[in-house]
Design a protein around this nucleic acid. Structure first.
Lengths: 167, 167
DNA sequence: CTCAATTCGGATATTTATTATCCGCAATAA
DNA sequence: TTATTGCGGATAATAAATATCCGAATTGAG
């Protein structure tokens, strides 16, 4: 089992958009080029973010993507759910009701203990992701990078930024 | 993304073996029949449990499976890892090093912040599963079942149990 | 001690989901 | 109007999970 790598791409894209600043965005081509990934597939991830309301878009000559709300109000869980869906990791098929000694339906009002345990574990996972925002990620990256690298990246950003209309 | 249903089957099988008692086991055919699942595929799950050392096996005329250690020393994480592997849910492909502004290797000694956040979330998930044992599951099932159902299941167990050699 | 019954174990097809891509349509700014 | 951009559905290629089979090993009975 493995989380789709689209989640990774989308998270990096959000972090980059956070660095772009409020109301400013990047085109799909710029996002794909910055991360060195194929544009058509990156498009799919960005569309998912748009559909989930995490980014806002503008079409046309100066179109592109920008964060729909401040970076400290977008969590990694939001991104994960947008791309990977919110379906539970563990899906109970109620095999306790099958077989020669299957439990009668009357005793199955509450979920199976195994399913309940997995649901609780998944909640712990989700809450951990909800505690990390895109702003946290962006701040961390800035802290780890050398001033030289930051200058280089900011220059690249400056020549690719686009102002999005005030929604 | 979804956890394989083999995990569910294996967890139920372990709970049933816990009810069988110390040193007693069930054949593959019995395990499959009890849960109403195809035997050949159940075999695959049991083999994985055996390979991970969670159950011990005995071949021959009176062979079968039994728990390798007390049920309160086998956690749901053990079962999950045995069947699903211990590979991380989120696999970082280090795209921060790619593209025109790729981070130099010298700044990538520590893991990417996004990967670190997912690793932390996965730890929370793992620790939750480590806190639930097969004994907990078995006790919970017993608590939820009617005396009538328990009697029925115990009778079925009694006519299918097999004593495994003292390893 | 031999043989036959019964089991586990690894290797093998089939099905399903994910990944990756393309092209026509709608929308926007110059 | 026109060039440019994102959106959406449809479509191959790839990986994973599912389901199954047959050989090897072991045990109990004869």
């Amino acid at each position: 089992m493995r989380l789709g790598q689209g989640v990774e791409w989308a998270a990096h894209a959000c972090a980059l958009l956070a660095a772009a600043g409020e109301g400013r965005g990047l085109s799909l081509a710029a996002l794909a080029e910055y991360h060195g990934v194929p544009a058509p597939y990156m498009a799919k991830q960005m569309q998912a973010l748009s559909k989930a309301g995490l980014v806002r878009t503008s079409r046309g000559k100066t179109g592109g993507y920008a964060l729909a709300r401040p970076a400290d109000q977008i969590t990694l869980w939001d991104v994960t759910r947008a791309l990977n869906g919110s379906a539970p990791l563990f899906q109970c098929t109620e095999i306790r009701q099958q077989g020669p000694c299957g439990a009668p339906r009357a005793e199955c009002k509450r979920p199976c203990h195994i399913a309940a345990a997995f649901a609780q574990a998944e909640t712990a996972w989700r809450e951990a992701l909800q505690g990390v925002t895109i702003a946290d990620i962006a701040a961390g990256v800035g802290r780890d990078s050398s001033p030289q690298h930051i200058t280089e990246a900011m220059h690249w950003l400056g020549s690719n930024l686009t102002d999005l209309p005030n929604r």
